[in-house]
C-alpha cells in the first residue's frame, strides 16, 4: 500500500500542478473558451454532457478492446506461423513490414467501403494498427528460444506442435507481453482515428466523432473532455494488459519477479 502510494503520488502531483497553472494562465490572460478552455470548464462540460460522453467512451472502449483482442490473436497466430517456417518468414515478413507502413488514415475509407460505418470498421482500424507489434514480438520471442532447450525437445523427439506449444510459445511470452503493451496503446489510437472517418454519428457516437463534431461546433471544452476520456481508455487497456502479463510471468520471469 505504502509502495503503490509512493508510485502514484509524484505523477499525480505533477498533474495537479500543471492543471493549476493551466487554470491560472486561462484566467490571467482571459483566453476565450473556444481557444483554450480552463480545466474547470472541461470538467463542467464532462458533467453536463455525461450521457453523450459516457456512450462515446463505451463505443471507443469496445472498438479498442475488440480491436486489441483481434490483433493479439492474429498477431500471435501469424507470428507463430512465421516463426515456425523460414520459408513463410521470408515470404511474408517483408510484406507485413510494408503493410505496417501504410498510414491508417489512408485505409480507413476502404474500411468504410467494405465494412460500413460504425463499430465494425473502427474495430478493424484498431486491430490493423495493433497487430504488427504483436506479430513482431511473437516472431522475435520464438526465434530467441534457448538452443539448449530446443536440444532437449529434440532428444525426446517432440513433434512440431509440442515444440510450439510447450517450448517456443512459453519462451516467447515475455516478448509477446511487451508487444501487447505497445499494441494496447496503439489500438486506442487506431480506434479514434478510425472513428474520425468511419464513426457512426448519433446518440451512440464514439469519442472520435464527439471530437470532430465538437470541433465544428467550437465546443473546445468537449474536445478536451473527449481527448482526456480516450486517453483514459488507453490507460485502462494498458493497465489490463500489463496486469495479465504480470499474472502470466510472475512465477518465473525476471521482469515480473522483480516487482514482487
Amino acid at each position: 500500500m505504502k509502495r503503490s502510494l509512493l508510485v502514484a503520488m509524484p505523477p499525480l502531483l505533477v498533474l495537479l500542478i500543471a492543471l493549476l497553472l493551466w487554470e491560472g494562465v486561462v484566467a490571467a490572460w482571459k483566453l476565450p473558451a473556444y481557444l483554450l478552455p480552463s480545466p474547470s470548464a472541461v470538467a463542467r462540460a464532462c458533467w453536463e454532457e455525461r450521457a453523450r460522453l459516457g456512450a462515446g467512451t463505451l463505443q471507443t472502449l469496445m472498438a479498442s478492446v475488440g480491436g486489441f483482442g483481434l490483433a493479439a490473436l492474429i498477431g500471435v497466430v501469424a507470428g507463430s506461423a512465421l516463426g515456425s517456417s523460414r520459408m513463410l518468414q521470408r515470404g511474408f515478413y517483408p510484406l507485413a513490414l510494408l503493410f505496417q507502413m501504410v498510414p491508417l488514415v489512408a485505409i480507413a475509407p476502404l474500411l468504410v467501403i467494405w465494412l460500413g460505418y460504425g463499430l465494425r470498421s473502427t474495430l478493424a482500424a484498431a486491430a490493423i494498427v495493433a497487430v504488427f507489434p504483436v506479430l513482431a514480438s511473437t516472431l522475435d520471442g520464438m526465434r530467441g528460444t534457448d538452443a539448449g532447450l530446443r536440444e532437449i525437445f529434440g532428444i525426446y523427439r517432440a513433434g512440431r506442435w509440442a515444440r510450439w506449444w510447450k517450448l517456443e510459445l512459453p519462451s516467447a511470452v515475455p516478448s509477446i507481453v511487451t508487444g501487447c503493451r505497445v499494441a494496447a496503446g496503439l489500438a486506442v489510437i487506431g480506434a479514434v482515428v478510425g472513428e474520425f472517418v468511419s464513426g457512426y454519428a448519433g446518440d451512440q457516437a464514439p469519442l472520435g466523432i464527439v471530437i470532430t463534431a465538437s470541433m465544428r461546433e467550437a465546443r473546445t471544452d468537449l474536445v478536451f473532455a473527449a481527448v482526456a476520456l480516450s486517453a483514459c481508455v488507453g490507460f485502462l487497456l494498458f493497465g489490463i494488459v500489463s496486469g495479465l502479463g504480470w499474472l502470466l510471468l510472475r512465477r518465473w520471469h525476471a521482469s515480473a519477479v522483480q516487482e514482487n
Binding site: 534457448d146 539448449g148 532447450l149 536440444e151 532437449i152 532428444i155 510447450k166 517450448l167 512459453p170 511470452v173 512465477r251 518465473w252 520471469h253
Partner: peptide, 14 residues
C-alpha cells in the same frame, strides 16, 4: 533409452 545431463541443467523456467 538415452538420458542426457548438461552442465546448464536446461530446465524449462516456466
Amino acid at each position: 533409452d538415452v538420458g542426457f545431463c548438461f552442465q546448464e541443467g536446461r530446465l524449462l523456467p516456466w
